[in-house]
Design a protein around this nucleic acid. Structure first.
Lengths: 152, 152
DNA sequence: AGTAAAATATTTGATAATCAAACATTTATT
DNA sequence: AATAAATGTTTGATTATCAAATATTTTACT
């Protein structure tokens, strides 16, 4: 790995790491200090609008339904999520966010918004195009790898 | 959040997520299938060259020494890490990678190298400069946030 | 020199995230 | 009606994590 490459690598690792830690701390300090990042992530998986089944949500999050069941148990206990049996197919359980859950979701999104604003704000139009192109390239590559390791 | 911003946000989340999963799977399939990402991370924290103390390593990784102790226990059992009491100060425990540990470390780095190569490879010189600048900006911002939440 | 304080690691007890496999309930198929 | 399939939950296990208690060794102080 040459000098340039390894600088890029280090920057990526550094960014990646600090975002994780910062998100967690930001969450712990805010109004929803009883939520972990993982729980926040579950809220995101459930989503703001549709009511999703357990299976859908688990697939969405890339976890097993067993894992989701215990996560939802806790989120229901804490008042962020509502569980309802589907009336037409009583095997199915539907989950959705409570008002409090939606609030938490939106608050968390502000963090991301802030991050993106700050990144994008100071850029020129050319730079913005460049950033978009770069990220799309990266997402494409990572997506390919992902497929290779999950199907191939 | 405007259209552009939210595209950037989505791309970032997508990349972030898929890298995590792919890394884990790649690891599980390879020659070091008994290592988790977290354990790999511990190996990185110990590093290739110096022998570090437990405290240094824990601080380096942002975890408590208690957590590190159990992680190192397992890595020693699996043959990736060596533990040695410091001869001049016998409170201190020094850890370093075994040959196998170094091998695993280097193998894992290949994944990162591949990623960076693929990202950087197709770029022009101008684009490379821009990428570097962008990442430095992002790292700067994230670093500031990090400090705010960890000290301020 | 002898004791109290500080530094370093480990152990303990607790919680959370995760999986696979066993189980229970409901629906679909034959 | 009986069997198979689908959907969730429960169980048992492992890993990651922390804070607080404990053990050992060194440093500082009197």
């Amino acid at each position: 790995m040459n000098e340039y490459d390894s600088t890029i690598n280090d920057l990526l690792l550094d960014i990646y790491d600090k975002i994780l830690v910062t998100e967690e701390k930001a969450l712990r300090r805010g109004s929803f200090s009883d939520l972990s990042i993982a729980e926040m992530h579950t809220l995101e998986g459930i989503g703001l609008y549709e009511t999703r089944t357990m299976s859908e949500t688990a697939a969405n999050l890339g976890i097993t339904t067993g894992t989701l069941t215990v996560a939802v148990d806790r989120l229901v206990r804490k008042g962020y999520v509502e569980r309802r049996r589907d009336s037409s197919d009583r095997r199915v359980v539907r989950v959705c966010l409570t008002r409090k859950g939606k609030l938490a979701f939106r608050m968390h999104n502000k963090f991301h918004k802030l991050l993106v604003d700050r990144i994008v704000g100071p850029l020129s139009e050319t730079e913005r195009q460049m950033l978009l192109k770069l990220l799309q390239q990266i997402a494409g590559f990572v997506g390919d790898q992902y497929k290779r390791y999950n199907l191939g």
